[in-house]
Design a protein around this nucleic acid. Structure first.
Lengths: 344, 344
DNA sequence: TTGAAAGCGCTAACAC
DNA sequence: GTGTTAGCGCTTTCAA
């Protein structure tokens, strides 16, 4: 089936070591031998067994991404991570490393962590990408303990330094809140991610700073946590709009949520962009095609992925030292789903 | 750093083999020894080195999915595959196998195939899932030649039998075409995937059969190929609607395309669901929240993923024989984006 | 320039 | 019950 180096050597009446050196481009083999070996290898369709190589080298020549489980939501990965990974993949490709994505899912967080530990120790990857970081992220702790190089997308509360890349969503939501205030809105809501994610805390902080800078007070009742899905955007937006004193502007932590929110407005005979101001986050493909086109925030997922890929590579480069951190600036993309406060 | 079985054995003054047997639950070790070993292993944080295990067993204990590269589109994976993989993952989990997703991207198809071959021979996976099959699919050929078990999502033109799972999209588009005809439409268009994908050929065939059954003739000018993105749906729909004799009904090969199509209608001051009938495919989350809610076709991606997971597992079960094939039925999900032909 | 030998960490016959 | 030995496929000293 698969030819081993032993067979190859035997068929050439050479020793394995000579064959090995010939194949790996060492200089101390006779040019003639090298050619014979190369020819035979090709003829016999020889491919070195990577597992054996890994065993001796101790390197996996692969990078791993462990995705937060979305299986409960019926997804393997959402579109933002998809763009992110595309960026990572584009950088990893051609470097001799493979990029693997896997998901660890378990209802039980404890079991999930065990799975993660297994994964770490299974030796699949030389370096890890950890995404969707939590404030208190045990995956980061585990990777640090295991001495496995890693970079995160998103920061954590960890005091130990490590490499990370993040979009400046605090600034994004600060600007978004100010924009809404500038449009005359006084009651500005935030449909946020769950607060154990650091990004959610940062977005809230940015939002509150923006409000404060505009001289507006923050009403905690206007901040709702959910997951970043269309369904939750719809659900939470309806809740907000049916409050006695509803918001006139709604900032969403994802474009999907915003699309749900627009749909929720419609379901209450309100028009997003006229009766209610809605903003998303992510500048997803869908955002420019929905009705009304979504005002959102560009956070360059693909580019961030590229940065992550570079950081991973750097981690594995012998001479590397220190940690790589990168805070990607964001940019408002105003379209038609938000506008002046008509109640004003 | 990582404790090896040798160190463990040494610290216990036992032989490696005894330790190995104790750890692997063989019966021929003294209960007392077993306990000592277990305790020491725990204390020293011993974890068997999976690479070494793989080398001796010849098994990777992993399944691999090689995703078609969407890097050019800035994506790692699209949402349909995401749902599919969630299903696969849910079945694989807890079986001792890992599920890896990786993408092979290269502008050059030849290079892409080389990458695929490398991947196959790199011994990462015991079985492969191949998705987005083409009529002539060299990946299938390669896997067959390499003797690596695999299952495809989608069929191919291959004459060799193999395991596959597919949604019955031929039937789906037959029904969709008939539905549109039943609503009084005469000029029914198809925004299809690229025709080297078998699914695209099947959908077209179903569409043509549906038209024929309704006594309608097929106009090749009404069938356009593109990729399954919002952008292409938008672009192609505009082309269609600006024809001298435009269609009144547009069937799309994906929900994303349909959302693009709805947006294209709007851009021409036409209302989908009233002036133009639009149908999607996939019943994505977004489809029920867009405006108008999308009439689409449910093809149960998650469930299909479960079937794929089962097929993969079956492939790796010693006693398995024959091939597993599953054609998943589909179901129309009528909502508001299609309707009677007003020109009629 | 080549070969012999050791070893990566583990499992599995086979002896004792 | 436990230890000895061999071997998975490869790389890498070290001698020759």
């Amino acid at each position: 089936m698969t030819t081993s180096i032993t067979e190859l050597a035997k068929s050439l009446s050479l020793s394995v070591s000579t064959v090995s050196r010939a194949l790996n481009g060492y200089t101390d083999v006779a040019p003639a031998t090298r050619d014979r070996v190369a020819a035979a290898a090709k003829a016999m369709g020889y491919r070195p067994n990577p597992t054996a190589r890994r065993l001796v080298s101790g390197k996996a020549s692969a990078m791993g991404v462990v995705l937060p489980s979305l299986v409960d939501e019926g997804q393997f990965i959402d579109s933002m991570y998809s763009r992110l990974l595309a960026g990572v993949a584009s950088k990893i490709e051609g470097t001799g490393y493979h990029l693997f994505a896997t998901t660890i899912s378990s209802g039980d967080p404890k079991a999930e962590l065990d799975l993660f530990a297994d994964f770490i120790h299974a030796g699949w990857a030389d370096a890890l990408l950890i995404v969707r970081t939590r404030v208190e992220d045990s995956r980061v702790k585990l990777a640090q303990e295991a001495g496995l190089p890693f970079v995160t997308y998103g920061r954590t509360g960890s005091t130990q330094p490590y490499s990370w890349v993040d979009a400046d969503s605090e600034e994004a939501f600060r600007q978004a809140a100010r924009r809404q205030a500038g449009l005359g809105h006084h009651r500005i809501a935030l449909l946020n991610g769950e607060s154990h994610y650091l990004f959610a805390q940062l977005r809230r902080r940015g939002y509150e700073r923006g409000l404060a800078e505009a001289g507006l007070s923050a009403d905690p009742a206007l901040v709702r946590d959910g997951n970043l899905t269309v369904a939750d955007g719809f659900r939470l937006c309806r809740v907000l709009l049916q409050m006695p004193d509803p918001p006139t502007s709604i900032l969403c932590a994802s474009d999907s949520m915003a699309i749900g929110a627009i749909s929720a407005c419609r379901s209450l005979n309100l028009a997003a962009g006229r009766d209610v101001s809605v903003m998303g986050y992510g500048n997803s493909e869908a955002s420019s095609y929905c009705d009304p086109p979504l005002s959102t925030i560009e956070h360059r997922a693909f580019d961030n992925g590229c940065r992550l890929g570079e950081a991973l590579l750097r981690l594995l480069t012998p001479g590397n030292t220190g940690h790589y951190t990168h805070l990607e600036p964001v940019e408002l993309v105003p379209r038609a789903s938000d506008g002046p406060c008509i109640a004003a």
